[in-house]
Design a protein around this nucleic acid. Sequence first.
DNA 1: TTGTACGCGTTATCAT
DNA 2: ATGATAACGCGTACAA
Lengths: 338, 338
Amino acid sequence: MKKARDGKPTINDVARIAGVSKKTVSRVINRSPLLNEATREKVEAVIAELGYVPNPQARALALRRNFLIGLIHDNPNAQMVLGVQEGILSAIRDTEFALVVRPVNRRSLDMLDDVRAFLEQQRLFGVMLLPPISENDALAELCEDLGVTYVRMGSVRLDEDEHMVASNDREAVANAVGYLVERGHRRIGFVAGPEGFRSAAERALGYRDALEQAGLALDPAIMAEGSYTFETGIAAGEKLLSASTPPSAIFASNDEMAAGVLHAARTQGLSVPEDLSIVGFDDTAIAAHIWPPLTTVRWPIQAMAKAAAIKLIDPAQARKQPSHFLSDLIERASVRPA
Amino acid sequence: MKKARDGKPTINDVARIAGVSKKTVSRVINRSPLLNEATREKVEAVIAELGYVPNPQARALALRRNFLIGLIHDNPNAQMVLGVQEGILSAIRDTEFALVVRPVNRRSLDMLDDVRAFLEQQRLFGVMLLPPISENDALAELCEDLGVTYVRMGSVRLDEDEHMVASNDREAVANAVGYLVERGHRRIGFVAGPEGFRSAAERALGYRDALEQAGLALDPAIMAEGSYTFETGIAAGEKLLSASTPPSAIFASNDEMAAGVLHAARTQGLSVPEDLSIVGFDDTAIAAHIWPPLTTVRWPIQAMAKAAAIKLIDPAQARKQPSHFLSDLIERASVRPA
DNA sequence: TTGTACGCGTTATCAT
DNA sequence: ATGATAACGCGTACAA
């Protein structure tokens, strides 16, 4: 019999000192109902006294599953990734789960192999997939094959409810453009996101919906595509503003591009919102810090991430978690009536 | 004897099929030098064939240490946290280490208890501490007590080299202000960061150094303090610009406040950089996206984080890693000669 | 209600 | 150079 030598106290130390068996201590830890109240209290006292904390590695080995949940992402934007991390943390706070992050490179050819190696090596409890890589069905399939439960975050329903948490970008954009229509804008330009991004496609659909709803026709002359960057936003803005009949308002599919449009407008001597109204998407930090502050659409990122994490770790609660979230329009100062 | 039943193959499966003992397989995995080449190849063939990957939980248990490194931070800004995560990942790529993140609340009274619980529960290999909480000595002491190795990132040398990776904010700010002096500015305002932040104090010292070096006197009328936010930047800007002799240039201790100063200038009808030059600090996303793009100072965050991670996981390399890093001045368009 | 004996997958000790 | 056997800390049958 060894004493509590150097390291942390173990379940054996607790059992020995409390004068019970390991199993009893184990029952106390796992809140087994069939336990004598007196025994429980005695054991709990010893646990407190020793400052005993169960070793998660040993638990993981015995239970044949660990308590790590992974976040796999391709850095869509820093604000979003951090928001997700906060959301997950709020779900696992006061549990034994921890969050391990794994940035990957979407453009890399061996991205899938990279993820596979990661999952096989770490044997995570489950993973969360962030857009845009969450849109990759092969990735979800890989998780399935490897027996790693997963939840995908996305701009639209990509999977079954238990594997999915979605914002409804199409509807959110339709609302935002509708907001412009309500304010009298009839010539509304659109800056699309890059092809291949599901979010970009959804947002484009939302734009069409709103125009159709308002009885307005699509006009390619005031539509452009960017790649979600500031620079491509400038280029898109220049194109739309040089149309023979330029728009009185522009919806850009993300804030970076909206900032680019703003820049292009300013370069052409236009005032925002006096001469041009602009609406963005994402509500990243830029939105509030450019001038004028940008009216934009915000995902409830933390709430979505929290719901997703709960789906992952708590099957009992999973069904009760919403799978669909509505985005809010954040009204700031970049829009005025036509 | 069990077959490779349902789950992943184990070391036993490999040993049985290769016709050797567990220990031999273990030796192969751990690259023990005293091994017959033929045996090694035979075992490696079986490993490849089975797709065997060692179980990290079992290893952790046997070795009595795991391979998780923690990142504890209080979200100074999203860009920085993500940069650090990337840096750490580049250091642990192709190793068995994984990164677990733990955001904490600096203002919470039980922040220390929170971290203690986290460390006791997860038993991490080591942790990285980000500013501003890395400046908290009690936190470092806690890690020490719990036997968790740590490395702190900060704006100045806070600890011994093996526990520290520092940018030299004082020198960086002195350089930035000197850059203004070189361009003929003699009346240079300063927006300090909040009291209690070591970085704020260091940056203020850098400002004083530069003025002294240039033979300029400190003038409280063109100095203000903010709390690293956009709004406090506006307030500070308003104060400085309403001085009886307003500054021709302003150094703000971070980009958010610089953006606020820019906003204040614009509100007062001033053009930047024609009427006022502005320099910020951090090179966050805002810096490049406001108009005019902000000249600012950039930490080599990823390089610092990578060095810090190597110090943590590889004692052999630790000494060779630099502990001090120089920040770069990023010249954009918010400065012009006086 | 509580305890005994064994398994989880790996490494370490000490032979051989 | 290789193997038998005992840890590592915890959970679970199955008994008692």
